[in-house]
Amino acid sequence: SMGQARALMGLSAQLDEELDFREGDVITIIGVPEPGWFEGELEGRRGIFPEGFVELLGPLR
Protein backbone atom coordinates (compact mmCIF):
# COMPACT_ATOMS: atom_id res chain seq x y z
CA SER A 1 0.00 0.00 0.00
CA MET A 2 1.20 3.50 -0.85
CA GLY A 3 -1.31 5.27 1.39
CA GLN A 4 -4.99 6.02 1.70
CA ALA A 5 -7.42 8.50 0.20
CA ARG A 6 -10.96 9.61 1.02
CA ALA A 7 -13.50 9.93 -1.78
CA LEU A 8 -14.70 13.53 -2.21
CA MET A 9 -17.54 12.32 -4.44
CA GLY A 10 -18.86 9.04 -5.72
CA LEU A 11 -17.58 7.46 -8.92
CA SER A 12 -19.76 5.19 -11.02
CA ALA A 13 -17.32 3.14 -13.09
CA GLN A 14 -17.70 3.62 -16.85
CA LEU A 15 -15.01 1.08 -17.77
CA ASP A 16 -14.25 -2.41 -16.47
CA GLU A 17 -10.93 -1.30 -15.01
CA GLU A 18 -12.42 1.60 -13.02
CA LEU A 19 -13.24 1.36 -9.31
CA ASP A 20 -16.75 2.17 -8.06
CA PHE A 21 -16.95 4.07 -4.76
CA ARG A 22 -19.17 6.38 -2.74
CA GLU A 23 -18.46 9.78 -1.23
CA GLY A 24 -16.59 9.31 2.06
CA ASP A 25 -15.19 5.86 1.24
CA VAL A 26 -11.56 5.37 2.31
CA ILE A 27 -9.62 3.75 -0.52
CA THR A 28 -6.22 2.07 -0.20
CA ILE A 29 -3.88 3.41 -2.89
CA ILE A 30 -1.82 0.63 -4.46
CA GLY A 31 -0.37 2.33 -7.51
CA VAL A 32 -0.14 5.27 -9.90
CA PRO A 33 -0.67 3.73 -13.35
CA GLU A 34 -0.35 7.06 -15.16
CA PRO A 35 -0.27 10.77 -14.26
CA GLY A 36 -3.62 11.93 -12.91
CA TRP A 37 -4.82 8.43 -12.01
CA PHE A 38 -4.57 6.19 -8.97
CA GLU A 39 -5.02 2.45 -8.67
CA GLY A 40 -6.86 1.55 -5.50
CA GLU A 41 -8.49 -1.19 -3.51
CA LEU A 42 -11.83 -1.02 -1.69
CA GLU A 43 -13.77 -3.89 -0.10
CA GLY A 44 -11.75 -6.48 -1.99
CA ARG A 45 -12.19 -4.76 -5.36
CA ARG A 46 -9.37 -3.13 -7.34
CA GLY A 47 -9.50 -0.52 -10.05
CA ILE A 48 -8.30 2.84 -11.32
CA PHE A 49 -9.83 6.28 -10.82
CA PRO A 50 -8.98 9.95 -11.50
CA GLU A 51 -7.06 11.59 -8.65
CA GLY A 52 -9.50 14.53 -8.60
CA PHE A 53 -12.18 12.34 -7.00
CA VAL A 54 -10.20 11.87 -3.77
CA GLU A 55 -8.15 13.64 -1.12
CA LEU A 56 -5.02 11.91 0.11
CA LEU A 57 -4.88 11.09 3.82
CA GLY A 58 -1.19 11.92 4.19
CA PRO A 59 1.70 11.66 1.71
CA LEU A 60 2.05 8.65 -0.57
CA ARG A 61 4.85 6.24 0.28
Rank of each mutant, 00 (worst) to 15 (best):
G36T: 05
R45C: 00
G40T: 02
E43R: 11
E18V: 09
L8G: 01
P59H: 07
Q4R: 11
S12T: 11
E34M: 08
M9H: 11
L15E: 14
F38L: 07
G40V: 07
G36A: 01
Q4K: 14
E55C: 04
V32L: 08
D20I: 01
G10C: 12
L11Y: 15
F53N: 10
P59S: 08
F53P: 07
F49H: 03
L8V: 11
E17T: 14
A7M: 03
F53D: 02
A7Y: 04
D16K: 06
F38Y: 15
E43Y: 07
I48Q: 15
S12P: 01
E43L: 06
A7I: 06
G58K: 10
E51Y: 05
M2A: 01
R45V: 01
M2Y: 10
E51T: 07
D25I: 02
E51K: 13
S12G: 07
R45F: 04
L60W: 08
E41I: 14
E34W: 14
G58S: 13
L42H: 13
L15S: 15
F53C: 12
E51V: 09
G31C: 06
E55S: 08
E17I: 11
E34H: 12
E39F: 07
D25V: 05
E17A: 12
A7W: 01
L8N: 04
P59I: 00
L42G: 04
G10N: 15
G3V: 09
G3D: 04
F49Q: 05
E51H: 07
E55P: 02
D20H: 09
L8Q: 09
S1G: 13
D16C: 07
E41P: 04
D16T: 08
M9T: 14
I29R: 02
V32T: 14
S12K: 12
L19A: 00
I27C: 05
Q4I: 13
P59M: 08
E18F: 12
R22H: 14
I29K: 07
T28D: 14
L15Q: 15
R22S: 09
L56V: 11
G10W: 10
I29M: 01
T28R: 09
G58A: 11
A5N: 03
R45H: 01
E43I: 03
G36H: 07
G52V: 13
E18I: 11
D16H: 12
L19S: 01
G10V: 05
E39H: 10
Q14P: 11
E18A: 08
F21L: 09
E39W: 10
E23L: 03
Q4E: 03
F21C: 06
D25Y: 01
L60H: 13
D25L: 01
E43D: 14
V54C: 08
L57F: 14
G36F: 04
E23F: 03
Q14K: 12
G44M: 08
Q4H: 14
E17F: 10
F38N: 08
M2N: 04
E43V: 02
E23V: 14
I30W: 09
F53Q: 07
D25H: 04
V54I: 00
S12D: 14
V32G: 08
I48P: 08
A5D: 03
E55D: 09
I27D: 01
Q14C: 08
G3W: 06
M2T: 08
R61L: 15
D16I: 02
G3K: 01
F49C: 04
V32Q: 10
E39R: 02
E18Q: 15
P59G: 07
F38G: 03
G3R: 03
R46S: 07
G36N: 15
L56Y: 01
E39P: 05
E51S: 14
L60E: 13
V32R: 12
G40R: 00
I27W: 13
S1P: 04
G3H: 03
R61S: 13
L56T: 10
L19R: 05
E55A: 01
L19V: 03
R46N: 09
E34K: 14
F38C: 01
R6I: 11
W37H: 02
G58N: 11
L60I: 13
S12A: 10
E23C: 12
S12E: 07
P59Y: 04
E23K: 13
D25F: 00
R22I: 11
G58P: 13
E41A: 02
L19G: 00
I27G: 04
A13H: 10
D16F: 02
L11E: 03
S1N: 13
D20A: 14
R6V: 14
Q14V: 11
G3P: 06
L57S: 13
E18T: 11
F21H: 05
A13Y: 01
G40C: 02
I30V: 14
S12C: 09
Q4V: 12
G10A: 15
A5E: 00
G40N: 04
Q4M: 13
G10L: 07
L8R: 11
E23W: 02
I30S: 05
L15M: 14
I27F: 02
S12L: 04
D25N: 04
A13R: 11
G47H: 03
Q14W: 02
T28F: 10
L42R: 09
V54N: 04
V32N: 10
L42Q: 04
R22W: 06
V54T: 04
T28M: 06
E51C: 15
I48N: 05
E43P: 02
R46L: 02
D16G: 08
M9Q: 14
G10Y: 10
I29C: 06
G31F: 00
V54G: 01
R45P: 03
E17P: 07
L11H: 15
E34C: 09
I30P: 01
L11D: 06
